[in-house]
Computed example of a mutant assay.
Amino acid sequence: MPVLTESRRAGDFVLSEANGNLSRDRIVIDTGVHLPGTVLGQVTATKKFVALDPAASTGAENAAAVLRDHADATDGDVNAVGYVRLAEVRADMLVWPAGISDNDKAEALAALATAHLVAR
């Protein structure tokens, strides 16, 4: 019998969120292919979201949201939904940039916590 592997699903990393859509906003993803749970930064000049990049100096170095569903922006901007406030997420299911340090993760989690996006 073959082994089937299920990929991540939209919001499967969410423990709780506010009623209705209060925790979520429509966002624009600028570039890249991203999984649900990807920690995002927001580029100050464009207000678009990209994967968190602690080495950037564009705004992308500051954690601002967590992506709800898959997003593929390889061919240009794509609309998506991000958790931007008032939610609890599973820390072990967040998607981080390769090679991110524990210190940068801690800073990103602290930044998300200021918007009441709490990793448990």
Rank of each mutant, 00 (worst) to 15 (best):
M1C: 05
P2N: 14
V3K: 13
L4M: 14
T5K: 13
T5F: 10
T5P: 04
S7H: 07
S7P: 03
R8F: 03
R9L: 09
R9E: 09
A10D: 11
G11E: 04
G11P: 09
F13S: 02
F13L: 01
V14L: 13
V14F: 11
V14C: 06
L15R: 08
L15W: 06
S16R: 02
E17N: 09
E17M: 14
E17Q: 15
N21P: 00
L22W: 12
L22F: 14
S23N: 11
R24C: 12
R24K: 14
D25M: 15
R26F: 13
R26D: 14
I27R: 14
V28D: 02
V28Q: 11
D30H: 06
T31P: 00
G32P: 02
G32D: 00
G32Y: 01
V33P: 00
V33K: 01
H34K: 05
L35A: 04
V39T: 04
L40T: 06
G41A: 06
G41R: 04
Q42I: 12
T44H: 07
T44D: 10
K48Y: 07
F49W: 08
F49H: 09
A51L: 01
L52P: 13
L52G: 09
L52V: 08
D53A: 12
A55L: 13
A56I: 08
S57Y: 14
T58M: 06
A60D: 11
A60C: 05
E61W: 08
A64K: 15
A65G: 06
A65F: 06
A65Q: 11
R68C: 07
H70G: 05
H70P: 10
A71D: 10
A71Y: 12
D72V: 15
D72C: 14
A73G: 09
A73L: 12
T74Y: 05
T74N: 05
T74L: 09
T74D: 08
G76L: 10
G76M: 06
G76T: 13
D77Q: 14
D77F: 13
D77K: 14
V78W: 04
V78M: 05
V81H: 15
V81R: 15
G82R: 10
G82L: 14
Y83N: 04
Y83M: 03
V84I: 15
R85Q: 11
L86D: 12
A87P: 01
E88P: 00
E88F: 03
V89A: 02
V89D: 00
A91V: 00
D92S: 12
D92Q: 07
D92R: 07
M93F: 05
V95K: 09
V95M: 03
W96Q: 09
G99T: 13
G99V: 07
G99I: 06
I100Y: 09
S101K: 07
S101H: 07
S101V: 03
S101Y: 06
D104C: 03
K105G: 12
E107G: 05
E107K: 13
E107H: 11
A108K: 02
A108V: 03
L109C: 01
L112G: 03
A113M: 00
A115H: 07
A115M: 10
V118H: 01
V118R: 01
A119G: 02
R120I: 00
R120K: 03
